[in-house]
Design a protein around this nucleic acid. Structure first.
Lengths: 192, 192
DNA sequence: GTCTATAGCCAGATAGAC
DNA sequence: GTCTATCTGGCTATAGAC
């Protein structure tokens, strides 16, 4: 998507971004299918018809949401690398950042995992897999930096453990699941 | 739901069951929201309007699908207990039964996990959490039979690992993820 | 019980005034 | 660029003939 700093047209500052932010939140809370253009427009404080000035179709909004979340992930990973030196600490920081609030996860699941899962049932639509590839690839690099030959498998394992935990947490509506599993995964990371 | 063996009205043999089976398959492949009554009726070979003779509303069909899948799970767990004596073998058999075909999981995810996740974003609708509670509770009993004091946590851990793996497998469209993680989880079960 | 026809609603998307 | 009004289509659900 167009970087807002490099966008050529100077007008409508922030309106497009407000639409994307509103869409991201509604999609997270309700899912893609259940979220209507009217929902998004209302949440962004913009008339319904005007949405189509910024996006040709609903799928284009979803694609913009994916790009926006991918940018957030990249920023997060960069910030973690700047704050932590030890690879194990970095992976722990990632898990805390995305699974930190168990109450929220219990209500809506993981923002990345739930989006990927819903969209994966609709081939032909926008591809959200980057949202999981980014953290997996990054975790792989951290494990490689620890000298692990099985870095890829460890990366898949830790992200899968988190995604599965988030799914159980929301399905069972029990933040305690996330709390207990997070503690276990962190202990496991320290033991590597 | 009414047990078909005990149902009082003798007519329409199998039609209701065919609707439920068709709905279960369509919901698995497309998700709940994207599946229409017309889809289900067509797949079952029944006229659209007639669906409402068997189910008052769409949510009632979804509830019947959940009940049907819960019955399947109970049957599966009972069959596993009859075939295997060692608790570790039983848990391994469960994982193989629900995650056996990586190609299918890569396309549609886990039938239980994806349904739970989608419905968990819509409180007020039918509650699918039984579909995850059944295998978790059963796995807990297996680990308890192995003498593990942390049986509950192990049960959550193993189901979460499977669910997370299924999610990554479908999001990345890579059956290899399921194959490799299954092997790792089975080895871990053997090491307990 | 079974099926056809259709009502009623609401979504995504468009036209065009300002 | 912004917004109002509206079109079109598809979905859930119902009415009522057979």
């Amino acid at each position: 998507m167009t970087d807002s700093k490099l966008r050529t047209d100077p007008v409508a500052p922030g309106k497009r971004d407000r639409l994307i932010a509103a869409a991201a939140q509604m999609v997270y809370e309700q899912g893609v299918e259940a979220t209507t253009i009217a929902d998004i427009a209302q949440a962004a404080g913009i008339p319904v018809g005007n949405v189509y000035y910024y996006f040709k179709a609903k799928n284009d909004i979803i694609a913009a949401v994916i790009d926006s979340r991918a940018g957030d992930i990249r920023d997060l990973l960069a910030a973690i690398e700047a704050c932590h030196d030890r690879p194990a600490d970095r992976v722990k920081a990632l898990l805390r950042a995305i699974g930190g609030d168990g109450e929220i996860v219990a209500r809506f699941g993981c923002p990345l995992g739930t989006l990927c899962q819903e969209l994966s049932k609709h081939p032909g639509g926008p591809d959200p897999s980057i949202l999981l590839r980014l953290p997996i690839d990054w975790a792989e690099r951290q494990f490689a930096a620890m000298g692990r030959a099985d870095a890829r498998e460890l990366a898949v394992q830790v992200i899968a453990a988190y995604q599965g935990t988030a799914l159980l947490t929301s399905a069972l509506r029990d933040p305690g699941v996330m709390a207990r599993e997070s503690a276990r995964i962190e202990a496991w990371l320290d033991s590597l």
